Deep mutational scan, measured.
Amino acid sequence: DTINITLPDGKTLTLTVTPEFTVKELAEEIARRLGLSPEDIKDTHNGKTLDPSLTLAEYGITPGSTITLEIK
């Protein structure tokens, strides 16, 4: 299953994830792909900052969802 990550420059990154991924694991994968530190990444969905300890499923993030990435 894939989700879309909207980057600060407007580009989109597509990642393969499972509903059990935590937001922290997602940030780590994004950081790895972009050459950043996971601590520099802030993920938001529907205007809410995502708690790193919760899973994508707990936020109702499903395949095809879009998450907005902010760099701290």
Rank of each mutant, 00 (worst) to 15 (best):
D1Y: 15
D1W: 15
D1M: 15
D1V: 15
T2P: 05
T2C: 07
T2Y: 12
T2F: 13
I3L: 08
I3K: 01
I3H: 02
I3C: 02
I3V: 07
I3F: 03
I3T: 01
I3A: 01
I3E: 02
N4R: 11
N4K: 10
N4T: 11
I5P: 02
I5M: 03
I5E: 01
I5H: 02
I5N: 04
T6S: 13
T6I: 15
T6C: 14
T6N: 14
T6A: 14
T6Y: 12
T6R: 15
T6G: 07
L7R: 02
L7H: 02
L7S: 04
L7W: 06
L7K: 02
P8G: 09
P8V: 07
P8C: 13
P8A: 10
P8N: 09
P8R: 09
P8T: 10
P8W: 10
D9M: 05
D9I: 03
D9A: 05
D9T: 09
D9Y: 07
D9V: 02
D9W: 14
D9H: 09
D9S: 13
G10S: 03
G10V: 01
G10I: 01
G10Y: 03
G10D: 03
G10N: 05
G10Q: 04
G10E: 02
G10W: 03
K11P: 04
K11Y: 13
K11V: 11
K11F: 13
K11S: 12
K11E: 08
K11I: 11
K11W: 12
K11G: 11
K11C: 12
K11H: 12
T12F: 10
T12A: 06
T12W: 09
T12N: 07
T12L: 09
T12V: 11
T12D: 02
T12P: 02
T12H: 08
L13D: 01
L13S: 02
L13A: 03
L13Q: 02
L13G: 01
L13K: 01
L13I: 11
L13W: 11
L13T: 03
T14K: 10
L15A: 01
L15T: 01
L15V: 12
L15F: 07
L15N: 00
L15R: 00
T16F: 12
T16V: 12
T16W: 12
V17R: 01
V17Q: 00
V17N: 00
V17I: 14
V17Y: 14
V17T: 04
T18L: 05
T18V: 06
T18P: 06
T18F: 08
T18I: 04
T18H: 12
T18Q: 05
T18K: 07
T18A: 06
T18D: 05
P19C: 05
P19H: 05
P19F: 06
P19M: 09
P19T: 05
P19Q: 06
P19Y: 04
E20N: 11
E20P: 02
E20T: 13
E20D: 12
E20L: 12
E20S: 12
F21L: 12
F21E: 07
F21W: 14
F21Q: 11
F21T: 15
F21K: 06
F21S: 11
T22N: 02
T22C: 01
T22P: 01
T22V: 01
T22Y: 01
T22K: 04
V23K: 00
V23L: 12
V23R: 01
V23H: 01
V23C: 08
V23F: 15
V23N: 01
V23E: 00
V23M: 11
K24T: 04
K24Y: 10
K24H: 07
K24L: 10
K24E: 03
K24V: 04
K24F: 09
K24N: 05
E25C: 07
E25D: 14
E25V: 03
E25A: 09
E25P: 01
E25F: 05
E25H: 09
L26R: 00
L26M: 07
L26C: 03
L26I: 03
A27I: 15
A27C: 14
A27M: 15
A27E: 05
A27P: 00
E28M: 12
E28L: 10
E28V: 09
E28S: 07
E28I: 11
E28W: 11
E28A: 10
E28R: 07
E28Y: 10
E29Q: 07
E29D: 04
E29L: 12
E29G: 03
E29Y: 12
E29W: 14
I30A: 02
I30C: 06
I30E: 00
I30S: 00
I30K: 00
I30M: 05
A31R: 06
A31N: 03
A31G: 07
A31M: 07
A31E: 03
A31S: 08
A31Q: 05
A31V: 05
R32T: 06
R32V: 05
R32G: 04
R32F: 09
R32N: 06
R32E: 04
R33D: 01
R33F: 14
R33A: 10
R33H: 11
L34H: 01
L34N: 00
L34D: 00
L34R: 01
L34I: 06
L34S: 04
L34Q: 01
G35N: 09
G35Q: 06
G35E: 04
G35C: 12
G35V: 02
L36R: 10
L36V: 14
L36C: 12
L36H: 06
L36P: 00
S37K: 13
S37T: 11
S37E: 10
S37P: 12
S37D: 10
P38Q: 06
P38K: 07
P38F: 15
P38N: 06
P38H: 07
E39N: 12
E39M: 15
E39W: 06
E39T: 14
E39G: 15
E39F: 15
E39D: 11
D40Y: 15
D40L: 13
D40P: 13
D40I: 11
D40G: 10
D40M: 13
I41N: 02
I41P: 02
I41E: 01
I41T: 02
I41G: 02
I41H: 03
I41C: 12
K42I: 15
K42V: 15
K42S: 13
K42H: 11
K42E: 10
K42A: 12
D43I: 15
D43P: 15
D43C: 15
D43M: 15
D43A: 15
D43H: 15
D43S: 15
D43Q: 15
D43N: 15
T44H: 11
T44N: 09
T44P: 14
T44F: 14
H45I: 15
H45P: 05
H45E: 08
H45K: 10
H45A: 12
H45M: 14
N46A: 08
N46P: 07
N46W: 14
N46H: 09
N46Q: 08
G47S: 05
G47M: 10
G47E: 05
G47I: 10
G47L: 14
G47F: 15
K48A: 11
K48I: 14
K48Y: 07
K48G: 10
K48E: 11
K48W: 09
K48D: 09
K48Q: 13
K48H: 13
K48V: 13
K48R: 11
T49P: 12
T49L: 12
T49M: 09
T49R: 10
T49I: 12
T49S: 09
T49V: 13
T49Y: 13
L50R: 03
L50P: 05
L50Q: 03
L50T: 03
D51T: 04
D51V: 04
D51P: 06
D51Q: 04
D51M: 04
D51L: 04
D51F: 03
D51H: 05
D51S: 05
P52R: 08
P52C: 12
P52N: 11
P52K: 09
P52V: 12
P52H: 12
P52S: 15
P52E: 10
S53L: 10
S53P: 02
S53T: 11
S53G: 08
S53Y: 08
L54N: 05
L54M: 15
L54E: 03
T55S: 06
T55R: 06
T55P: 06
T55E: 01
T55H: 02
L56D: 00
L56F: 02
L56R: 00
L56N: 00
L56G: 00
L56W: 02
A57M: 11
A57R: 14
A57E: 09
A57V: 11
A57L: 13
E58S: 08
E58H: 11
E58Y: 11
E58Q: 08
Y59D: 01
Y59H: 09
Y59W: 09
Y59V: 15
G60N: 04
G60V: 01
G60E: 03
G60P: 01
I61F: 07
I61W: 10
I61A: 02
I61Y: 07
I61S: 01
I61Q: 01
I61G: 01
I61C: 06
I61M: 04
T62F: 14
T62Q: 10
T62G: 12
T62H: 11
T62N: 07
P63I: 05
P63R: 02
P63E: 06
P63V: 06
P63N: 09
P63F: 05
P63S: 09
G64N: 05
G64K: 01
G64M: 02
G64T: 02
G64V: 01
G64C: 03
S65F: 06
S65I: 08
S65R: 02
S65N: 05
S65L: 06
S65D: 10
S65A: 10
T66C: 13
T66F: 07
I67R: 00
I67T: 02
I67L: 11
I67Q: 01
I67G: 00
T68K: 14
T68V: 14
T68M: 14
T68R: 14
T68G: 06
T68W: 13
T68N: 11
L69W: 05
L69Y: 02
L69V: 15
L69D: 00
L69F: 05
L69N: 00
L69T: 03
E70G: 09
E70D: 10
E70C: 14
E70R: 06
E70T: 10
E70K: 07
E70L: 11
I71G: 05
I71T: 06
I71W: 10
I71M: 08
I71R: 05
I71V: 09
I71S: 06
I71Q: 05
K72V: 13
K72M: 13
K72C: 14
K72G: 12
K72D: 13
K72W: 14
K72Y: 13
